[in-house]
């Protein structure tokens, strides 16, 4: 039963994470390959604040603001770049942020990580047990889903999709594409931060090793597999992939296999990404209007 609850908590956290990337990549067409950075900022901010006895509600808000702010900072120089350059710039940002977590030992305790992160308390209600935490993540997943759905269906969403299809045309229509892309990254970063907060208070221990490229690849794969540019795609992708990943963990495989199993699983993810791109780039769910 605990396994089942754990599975669903992870699926919901990754759904939020994937939905945030989907806004940037699926709808706006931005190649954010360092999305884990914002997940990490959210996670570390909230963890550090609550460890210093700051109430969760406040830490939560600060963490989201911090993620959005860093998204804003990163997007100013890097969104001047054409697609692939933005990809490398974000990739680099992700790697550097990990270096910061690792090197600023006075703040983050470096590679040792932060243990004992408290469970969240909201309105003097403590989300300590698995079912309670599941309710919290589920609730926030629904909130994220609805907010992003409103954004996507609003004029803003249409503009973002327009930028993806043809930036020049949008600019000719008098839209400042640069500003809209910044908005997309900031909103995406805030929700990535939200996923980070939920994750950090769930595992209660974080270290720089949790925020590597592998996580970015996983969430990228979730979005691509589920169907980028669709409302339900990220949820679907998260369900399939997290189910696969987390159930491997509970198969009780001999520990000495671990050395081979982890890279093998990552190879499968990499291979799946290549396979999908060649044979089914639209993923499981196809975006409306793309069915040609």
């Amino acid at each position: 039963m605990d396994l089942f609850l754990h599975l669903w908590i992870m699926i919901f956290i990754y759904s939020i994470f994937a939905m945030s990337l989907n806004l940037e990549m699926g709808y706006t067409g931005l190649f954010n390959f360092g999305h884990i950075a914002f997940f990490g900022i959210g996670a570390y901010t909230s963890a550090l604040l609550t460890l210093h006895q700051i109430p969760f509600a406040l830490a939560f808000v600060v963490a989201l603001v911090a993620s959005g702010f860093f998204g804003f900072l990163l997007s100013i120089p890097s969104l001047r770049l054409r697609g692939d350059y933005f990809g490398i710039a974000t990739l680099g940002f992700g790697e550097i942020l990990r270096m910061v977590f690792q090197n600023e030992v006075w703040l983050t305790k470096g590679p040792m990580g932060l243990p004992g992160i408290p469970k969240p308390i909201l309105f003097s209600y403590r989300f300590a047990t698995l079912p309670q935490y599941l309710l919290l993540t589920m609730g926030l997943t629904i909130v994220t889903f609805l907010i992003l759905r409103i954004i996507i269906r609003s004029p803003l969403g249409r503009t973002l999709r327009g930028i993806r299809e043809d930036e020049i045309v949008l600019m000719a229509l008098g839209k400042n594409a640069f500003h809209f892309k910044i908005k997309s990254v900031v909103i995406g970063s805030v929700f990535a931060g939200l996923a980070g907060v939920l994750w950090t208070h769930y595992t209660t221990f974080i270290s720089p090793g949790d925020f590597t490229l592998s996580e970015t690849i996983l969430v990228l794969l979730i979005v691509v597999l589920g169907g980028k540019g669709t409302e339900w795609g990220p949820l679907m992708g998260a369900f399939v992939l997290i189910f696969f990943q987390e159930s491997l963990r509970f198969l009780k495989l001999p520990t000495e296999w671990g050395r081979y199993l982890a890279p093998l699983q990552q190879m499968i993810f990499g291979g799946l990404l290549i396979f999908l791109m060649i044979y089914r780039p639209e993923g499981l769910i196809r975006e409306k209007g793309e069915g040609r």
Binding site: F31, F33, G87, L213, S214, I217, L220, V224, P263, L264, Q266, M267, F269, G270, G271, L272, L273, I274, M277, I278
Partner: peptide, 12 residues
């Protein structure tokens, strides 16, 4: 994305 997939595949 495919290139990133190759990169990840080869690295692992």
């Amino acid at each position: 994305i495919a290139a990133l997939g190759i990169s990840f595949f080869l690295r692992n």
